[in-house]
Design a binder for these strands. Structure first.
Length: 816
RNA sequence: GCCGAAGUGGCGGAAUGGUAGACGCGGCAGUCUCAAAAACUGUUGAGGGGCAACCUUCGUGUCGGUUCGAGUCCGACCUUCGGCACCA
């Protein structure tokens, strides 16, 4: 089977891409006559080059989007660039290239690479987050959040990356206390910063019932938000020089309140200096100094031995009137709960270790089963029966929590409370390359938001890039000096810029109408397209981008700007592509660039190969030799379609078989497309071509039947190998374009077999196979099985017990 | 420590509780060629037997269990990878 013209991907891919662009066939507009489908892939950061990892995110999602398109959906599948961020500025510092120049050159290159994929991106809808026409609206949203009371300025101990020279949000500190971006160890600093009140939406963010997301991501978000239900309990305070008459703790175990033998504050707690008695002052100050020197990771390392010091003062446990010594210890975190805990060593492992080390009493108040008053070897943290707890003795832990809470509430000594691990989102960055925060500081008026009509607050092009730990904008006088929008007196601009996750929290809205310049988006178009039906991208964004974007949408929904609750109805996370056993990265020097493979084997081969590696959600290892196999297969498809088919003697049985194979293939490919099982989809198409190759040699079906099979093959191949399919579609004489055709449908009737291979087992072991018509009855099948020579040999003269029959599958003879 | 995912040929992987290893890579043999590459065809889990077509035993991380029958279900464990981790 040789054809005179060889498959030449370089030539045909260029030709069709140009024609598709010239004909605008992938441009999308709102159309009420078809169901819409918004298929979004996370937009890439403008790092400079697209590697195979990017293709792994983009090519399969394009294949799926093309599939939906052929199924009759009006598909929006846009692309853009996440263009603000630290690498651009770091390059400016190290190489003297302006971030804008660097970024726009990178975009130029990446756009070229993206186009080589052959995707259905409508480039009229491209968004670039670092351009004023985009970040004007990022700033506008900031003002909206500010007006809604969701953006505020506050002082807090914040994460500081010494290498990036900026603060980071909690979500951007990963693993054992490292910067998400550069990997440096993060430290804490007390700074006044801008925050978004994401904690206001903590409960709603815990609710994933309205979205179809991988369970694993939902769990990660739930863990991150970390909701704890318990009580806030007041301990009495009588200390000269301290006005407060009580201090509160948060606990999930109100039932253990009678077991409190000490009280621990975070070293940062504001009352610590006043509660320290003179004779403990030196020791306390030394301990606080040591605590502050530690990184977050060192401080929270689980293995670390408990440390702490006594302040010399006491609180009163109001339930039993006991005096309880106040300590400070670094295992108590300033940002969680009230920054104070009650020490119940008998029923909390940390408190237990602390008490052992400092020889504090350990009092059992929850009796373990079969407890006879002996000392505990470790904390008993399970439920049990309350003992040594006054009027609460005899209650179970569960009853005890309720009873103690009721009692506290009645006495006014406490209340039921909920605490979250989630912190407010810290969004200010001491860097240049981001959207300026649209705020002005006036000596008379204080914090003044920039009026909407004055947006955008433009980044000055002439700032100096030095890693000083402060925003370069701070030293740019033309930027800083302004007048107060309220009173017109001289004022200073905010010089911090916004976290780039702010830009990516709304870009999916902008794709619906990127052309509008008097609003962030067009209401009608937004209503048509949103929410996103399918969002695909990496799982590493679980507690960052994906959480922020959900918060953002809920916040603007409450402002009445949108009318949906969730931005992304369905989420799918593709796996990671690795090379030489490691995730691709420039620093490891194992980046595989798609360009050379595209140049040599064609984009279609690269698209198909990365989908063939394995299930999309699992990722896999890139293999140079593997892709050759894919290229070979596409060549075989070419040769098969291009070869002249002539029929010899027609065999009706084979014609029926061809129809059956075709319809089964359509069914398999359709199902696999829907489930993102592209690897098995391709295997099915390969099997189909292998079968057609055999059939071509045989020549026992009519020319018409042959052509129909080829037509279906091309349609099924079109999403995966759009260029090749288009070329062959034209060459076999079909009208342009294959990408405007309908997805083939299968007829279930035609997939039914005429004959099946029955497996014959004796005691569950395969002993024989026999081909039978599907119409065979159970009795006939059993009789046939028993009559087989091979079966007789295994049965011998043993007694025959049950005979199991699974229609169309097997007969299993059980012998004694 | 807790939560989640995964362990199948030389490799990537496939298998509604019913023929384990589809499909592909690699290997081997062959066709073509002066030769090589490319392409194409055949073959390829391991062990044992047979001149042969074939026959046979073992085999899906480990150990148990359920079942006529387990890669698949249940229990316990081991390993790898991801996430969280002094959160009161």
């Amino acid at each position: 089977m040789k054809s005179s013209l060889r498959y030449n991907p370089q030539e045909i891919e260029k030709k069709w891409r140009e024609k598709w662009a010239a004909d605008h066939i992938y441009e999308v507009r709102e159309d009420d006559s078809r169901p819409k489908f918004y298929a979004l892939t996370m937009f890439p950061y403008t790092s400079g080059d697209l590697h195979i990892g990017h293709w792994y995110a983009m090519a399969p999602s394009d294949v799926h989007a093309r599939f939906k398109r052929m199924q009759g959906y009006n598909v929006l599948h846009p692309m853009g660039f996440d263009a603000f961020g630290l690498p651009a500025e770091n390059t400016a510092i190290s190489h003297g290239i302006h971030p804008y120049i660097w970024t726009m050159e990178n975009i130029e290159n990446m756009r070229r690479q993206l186009k080589s994929i052959g995707a259905i991106y409508d480039w009229n809808r491209e968004v670039i987050s670092c351009l004023p026409e985009y970040y004007k609206w990022t700033q506008w949203f900031f003002l909206k959040l500010y007006q809604a009371g969701l953006a505020y300025r506050g002082e807090a101990p914040v994460n500081w990356c010494p290498r990036c020279q900026t603060v980071l949000a909690n979500e951007q500190v990963i693993g054992e206390g490292f910067c998400e971006r550069c990997g440096a160890a993060v430290t804490k600093r007390d700074l006044e910063q801008w925050f978004f009140r994401i904690t206001k939406y903590a409960d709603e963010l815990l609710d994933h019932s309205r979205i179809d997301w991988p369970e694993r991501i939902e769990i990660m978000q739930k863990n991150w938000i970390g909701k704890s239900t318990g009580a806030e309990i007041a301990f009495g305070l009588e200390h000269k020089g301290v006005d407060a008459k009580e201090m509160r703790v948060f606990t999930t175990r109100a039932d253990t309140i009678f077991g409190v033998t000490f009280f621990v504050l975070a070293p940062e707690h504001p009352l610590v200096p006043q509660l320290t008695t003179p004779e403990h002052k030196a020791e306390v100050e030394e301990y606080i100094f040591q605590t502050q020197r530690q990184t977050e990771f060192e401080r929270t390392a689980v293995e670390k031995e408990k440390g702490g010091v006594f302040l010399g003062s006491y609180v009163i446990n109001k339930l039993n009137g006991e005096l309880v010594p106040i300590w400070i210890a670094d295992y108590v975190l300033p940002g969680y709960g009230t920054g104070a805990v009650m020490g119940v060593p008998a029923h909390d492992q940390r408190d237990f270790e602390f008490a052992k080390k400092f020889e504090l009493p350990i009092r059992v108040v929850i009796a373990p089963p079969d407890w006879a008053g002996e000392e505990l070897e470790s904390a008993y943290t399970e439920s049990g029966t309350m003992v040594n707890s006054g009027q609460f003795d005899g209650l179970s832990s569960e009853q005890g929590v309720e009873a103690v809470c009721d009692y506290l509430q009645a006495k006014g000594w406490g209340k039921r409370a909920i605490t979250y691990r989630l912190r407010d989102w810290l969004i200010s960055r001491q860097r240049y390359w981001g959207a300026p925060i649209p705020i002005v500081y006036c000596d008379k008026c204080g914090i003044v938001p920039v009026p909407e009509k004055d947006l955008p607050v433009l980044l000055p092009p002439d700032a100096e890039f030095k890693p000083t730990g402060e925003s370069p904008l701070k030293y740019c006088e033309s930027f800083v000096n302004t007048t107060c929008p309220q009173c017109s007196s001289p004022a200073r601009r905010e010089t911090d810029t916004m976290d780039t996750f702010m830009c990516s929290s709304w870009y999916f809205l902008r794709y619906t109408s990127p052309e509008v310049d008097n609003n962030a988006f067009d209401d009608g178009k937004l209503k048509y397209w949103m929410p996103v039906d399918l969002y695909t991208g990496g799982a590493e964004h679980a507690t960052m981008h994906l959480l922020y974007a959900r918060f953002f949408v809920k916040a603007i929904r409450d402002m009445g700007l949108v009318d949906f609750d969730e931005p992304f109805v369905r989420l799918f996370n593709q796996g990671t592509i690795v090379y030489r056993g490691e995730k691709m990265s420039k620093s490891k020097g194992n980046v595989v660039t798609p360009d050379e493979y595209v140049a040599e084997l064609g984009a279609d081969a690269v698209r198909a190969y990365i989908m063939f590696i394995g299930p999309w959600e699992q990722g896999g290892e890139w293999s140079d030799s593997g892709i050759v196999g894919m290229s070979r297969w596409l060549n075989r498809v070419w040769n098969l379609v291009m070869a002249d088919y002539s029929s010899k003697e027609i065999d009706p049985k084979v014609e029926r078989e061809l129809s059956r194979v075709t319809h089964k293939t359509i069914r398999k490919v359709t199902g696999d497309m829907e489930r993102f099982r592209f690897n098995t989809m391709l295997a099915a198409l390969m099997e189909f071509t292998n079968y057609l190759g055999w059939l071509w040699e045989e020549g026992v079906v009519s020319v018409l039947a042959w052509r129909e099979a080829i037509t279906n093959l091309l349609l099924l191949l079109a999403p995966t190998a759009p260029h090749l399919a288009e070329e062959l579609w034209a060459r076999v004489g079909h009208p342009y374009s294959i990408h405007n055709q309908s997805w083939p449908k299968w007829d279930e009737e035609l997939t039914k077999e005429e004959e099946v291979t029955l497996v014959v087992q004796v005691n569950g072991k395969l002993r024989d196979k026999v081909t039978v018509p599907v119409s065979i009855t159970e009795a006939e099948a059993k009789e046939l099985a028993l009559s087989r020579e091979r079966v007789k040999a295994y049965v011998g003269d043993k007694e025959i017990g049950r005979i199991l029959y699974v229609p169309r599958r097997l007969v299993n003879i059980v012998v004694g």
